[in-house]
C-alpha cells in the first residue's frame, strides 16, 4: 500500500505545481491628484473616487495615492500606499486606515504653484512595476495641463508598457472654452505620449461611471 501511496502523492504534488499559475491576478492602482491652483477645489471628487477604489479593490491588490505638485517624481509625494492583506478582515482594517489618511490630507492640502504630471506618471510607473501586479492602472485626476518650473526636464518619451492610463475629471480651462481645440490637442498629445510609451489611454469625465476606470 505504501508503495502506491508515495508515488501517488508525488504525482498529485507535481500536477498541482504544474497547475500553479505564474501570471499575477492582482491589480495595482496608482492615483495622481492634481493639487495645483484652483484644482484643489475638485479634491472632494477625488476622495469619492478613492472611496470607490477602496470598495472595489480586493485582498492582494495594491493602491497608492500621490499628489501632483511642482516636482512629482518623488516618493515624498505619495500620500498613502498599501498592498491589501490576503485576509478580508485585515484588508478591511487597512482600507479604513487608508481612508482616514486621505481625509486628513484633503483637509490640510496646500495648493502647489506648478503641475508636474509627467514626473507623477514616472513615479507611478516605478511603483506599479515594483508591485508585480497583473493589471496596472494609473488614474490621473487632473486637467492635464502641465506647468513645469523652469529647469525641469520632462519632454522625453516615457515607458509605460502594459499600463492603463486613465485621465479623470479633465476639466475645461478658461482658454479651452474660448478655443476647444486647445483642450482636444492637450488630450491628443497625452494620448500620443501614452500610446507611444506602450500604454493604453482613456478619458473618463463622467464620474457616475467609475466602474469603467478599472475595465480592460
Amino acid at each position: 500500500m505504501k508503495k502506491i501511496i508515495l508515488p501517488l502523492f508525488l504525482v498529485v504534488g507535481a500536477l498541482l505545481c504544474g497547475c500553479t499559475d505564474t501570471t499575477s491576478h492582482s491589480r495595482a492602482v496608482y492615483m495622481l491628484m492634481d493639487t495645483s491652483g484652483t484644482y484643489t477645489a475638485e479634491l472632494k471628487k477625488a476622495q469619492a473616487i478613492i472611496n470607490f477604489l477602496l470598495g472595489t479593490l480586493q485582498p492582494g491588490d495594491s493602491l497608492a495615492v500621490a499628489r501632483i505638485d511642482t516636482g512629482s517624481f518623488s516618493e515624498k509625494d505619495i500620500i498613502q500606499k498599501v498592498t491589501f492583506d490576503g485576509r478580508p478582515s485585515m484588508s478591511n482594517e487597512q482600507k479604513r486606515v487608508f481612508r482616514q489618511k486621505i481625509d486628513d490630507f484633503v483637509a490640510s492640502v496646500q495648493a502647489s504653484p506648478y503641475t508636474d504630471i509627467t514626473g507623477g506618471v514616472l513615479q507611478a510607473v516605478e511603483y506599479l512595476n515594483e508591485t508585480g501586479a497583473g493589471r496596472k492602472t494609473i488614474l490621473v485626476f487632473s486637467d492635464m495641463e502641465e506647468d513645469l518650473q523652469k529647469g525641469y526636464v520632462r519632454d522625453f518619451p516615457i515607458q509605460i508598457s502594459g499600463i492603463d492610463v486613465v485621465a479623470l475629471n479633465v476639466t475645461k480651462l478658461r482658454q479651452d472654452i474660448v478655443d476647444p481645440r486647445k483642450y482636444m490637442s492637450r488630450l491628443a498629445e497625452w494620448e500620443k505620449r501614452v500610446n507611444a510609451g506602450g500604454g493604453r489611454w482613456r478619458v473618463i469625465n463622467d464620474l457616475e461611471r467609475l466602474e469603467r476606470m478599472l475595465e480592460g
Binding site: 500553479t20 491576478h25 492582494g60 490576503g86 485576509r87 478580508p88 478582515s89
Partner: peptide, 18 residues
C-alpha cells in the same frame, strides 16, 4: 468560499481560480 479566503488568503490563485 468567502471565509476560506480568511484562511488561505484571498489573493492567491491556483491556475485561473482563487
Amino acid at each position: 468560499a468567502l471565509p476560506m479566503s480568511e484562511m488561505v488568503g484571498g489573493g492567491s490563485y491556483i491556475g485561473p481560480y482563487k
